[in-house]
Design a protein around this nucleic acid. Structure first.
Lengths: 242, 242
DNA sequence: CGGATCATTGAAGTCCCTCAAGTCCTGTGG
DNA sequence: CCACAGGACTTGAGGGACTTCAATGATCCG
């Protein structure tokens, strides 16, 4: 029933580093199964200590925190290939929640085996650290965006990042991609109000820079949008998959 | 001349997990020396690929990014015990710069030995990943702050975090600590203007919540300041030192 | 057909930014 | 010894980007 790592289509996407046959075999040992959850399901909960780790095989999700005043900060949009639960695996407790935006297929790993990654497979441990460092890198960009960019720049930044990510996964067809989030999600990610996010999107639409409606995102000229976003390097590095 | 890891005072501070004698000996092998730099020196440069990794022994510093429009986002304040250069070590390139705010004493490690961490010492590799995860955790809080908190809440949050950090390092005496940064640093960390940061600090001063002047920070009632900052958990976890 | 969710648009208000000026302090050089 | 420049901090005033409030459509669904 479950996909074998060997046959996993994800591995072959551009974004990911290739793995040796032997590495794949090793990973297979960790996989305890697959899990499918409906849109809206909370997969990991802030403060909890999940016994499981996941890799997203299909679908999209949302990382977020809820502040004491009830406000929500979206930290990250989750795409196929993303690894979930590292924080719980390392520090014993999640500092954010993860919620499925679409129906989600997850590859499930057992956390109790986590240690053997480090003991037996230094290369896998290195990949794990790489992923943590990559997330930190991204969060640094996010802070800079929320702190220093204007609304137009921030929204452009987010859309470019999303689009690049999707390109690396082969999810862009004819300059368009599935983008199943709602405007409130983007607003909460950028520290903007829903109303202003809406107006900003409208402005980008009018300027022919980005069209997002009905769950579909189209970017006619990625270069131009990046310019507006004040983004220089447009190439995300190849990343390991876990 | 250089301190032996065995005798390093840092290790004994509350914030840090204890290390076995054997672990210490292993770390000693990596240490290639010590380095002292003057205030204002750039230690690591965005985009560069430093051959060295550092642990701060004494002094304070600043992690920051410069955007295309010249604006600066301060990502983090650096305290003794902080590990610098992980990104370069893992991903091969720094995504931010690090600048000394005071005279700085650094413990220098050779990056070329980085791999043996993973190969020979899974426990050290685990610590490394822990540190990366901790940074990510912190950055998540930072995004939430810049995105969702008001100026008063944000400044309070920053000061509480700083104060707690200093407490764990035994740097707080009589409710006061050395805080050698300038208001512009704090402003750039929180995405606020210098002027507004100044006025916010004045307001906190008037409300008897925090007094920061002449490089000294006093917090008469940490609990009260945390309340204003909307911070619940006030205890940063013990962290490994590298 | 009501109820719910999401997108959209107008209007009013506010938090924060920018501009501007002035103080205090330190270091430097005539 | 004083004049002057530079850096950090402070304070007032005006403006703007974004928020909040409010109302309307559109779509989907039981």
């Amino acid at each position: 029933m479950t996909t074998k790592c060997e046959n996993c289509a994800l591995r072959r996407k551009d974004t990911f580093e290739s793995m040796s046959a032997e590495e794949i075999k090793f990973m297979e040992r960790f996989k305890v199964g697959e899990m499918v959850v409906e849109a809206g399901t909370t997969i990991l909960m802030e403060g909890s200590n999940s016994p499981q780790l996941f890799t997203v095989l299909h679908g999209m999700a949302l990382r977020y925190k809820i502040l004491l005043n009830g406000k929500r900060q979206v930290l990250n949009l989750i795409f196929p290939g993303d690894f979930l639960g590292l924080q719980a695996g390392i520090m014993g407790e999640m500092s954010h929640s993860v919620e499925a935006t679409t129906k989600l297929t997850l590859c499930v790993f057992d956390r109790s085996e986590f240690w053997s990654f480090f003991k037996e497979r230094p290369d896998r441990a290195f990949s794990l650290t790489w992923l943590a460092a990559l997330d930190e890198h991204f969060m640094g960009e996010a802070v800079s965006t929320v702190g220093q960019r204007t609304a137009v720049q921030a929204v452009s930044w987010a859309l470019v990042r999303v689009f690049l990510r999707a390109q690396g996964l082969g999810l862009v067809k004819n300059g368009a991609m599935r983008f199943p989030f709602v405007q409130q999600d983007l607003a909460d990610a950028l520290g903007l109000s829903l109303v202003h996010t809406n107006k900003t999107l409208a402005s980008l639409r009018k300027r022919q820079l980005a069209h997002w409606s009905d769950g579909t995102l189209r970017v006619p000229d990625l270069e131009a949008l990046s310019q507006v976003a004040m983004l220089e390097d447009m190439s995300p590095p190849k990343r390991p998959i876990m």
